[in-house]
Amino acid sequence: MIISVVILGAPYSTQAPATALRFAKSAIAAGHTIHRIFFYHDGVNCANELIIPAQDEIHLPNEWQSIAKENTIDMVVCIASAIKRGVIDPTEASRYEKPASNLKDQFEISGLGQLVDASIHSDRVITFGP
């Protein structure tokens, strides 16, 4: 089955990105395909390369990065949600004349159309709320 996941909660202040990660790993292990992870609202903070958790805590941005890399999962960050929270790629940094960008590798900034597209191309869309 083709499954897409929507993450609305911020890492470390809600459980959403951690629960979604466990769900995605189990789905892949069961032979399902994860088509896209859509990071929306506070969920976009998962794509911040500058996040440094304590050493004995799970590194959620790194976990998402590796699962995406190993399974070629499309990871899309909502542009409207991202830029207002200071999560920007080099293109947005130059557009808004910012001195740096912080979007993590494997993540891509795009629009809500990608969420619509994910629901069209997936058998299930599972939302993990804040």
Partner: peptide, 9 residues
Amino acid sequence: DNGFVELAV
């Protein structure tokens, strides 16, 4: 977690 996936399917 595997059971969660099974329910979703």
